[in-house]
């Protein structure tokens, strides 16, 4: 699968889960591996790239870290919007 397609799937999954469950990287790997049949390393690379460019981000709340879609405010402040 193309990297960009994989990343779109990751993004769609994050959108779907928004507000329902705080996702850890591991949860995302599991879901996307099941959906696409890709291996963990591939999904991880795709996700990490999205994090590096600010398409998704690490978040922290309730005493634990998670992965989320960034808010507009975050993107503005990083000069990405």
């Amino acid at each position: 699968m193309e990297q960009s397609e994989l990343q779109d799937k990751i993004f769609a999954y994050l959108e779907k889960m928004k507000g329902k469950k705080k996702l850890k990287e591991k949860d995302i790997f599991k879901a996307i591996m099941a959906e696409t049949g890709e291996d963990k390393a591939t999904v991880k690379t795709a996700l990490r790239e999205m994090i590096n460019v600010g398409r998704v981000m690490y978040s922290y709340g309730g005493g634990a870290s998670s992965v989320e879609i960034p808010s507009e405010e975050y993107l503005k402040e990083k000069g990405l919007l």
Binding site: I51, M57, Y58, S59, Y60, G61, S65, E68, K78
Partner: peptide, 13 residues
């Protein structure tokens, strides 16, 4: 307030 979401790009720590 409780910690908010801030960080540097690419890192979560």
């Amino acid at each position: 307030k409780h910690g908010g979401i801030v960080g540097v790009l690419g890192y979560g720590s």
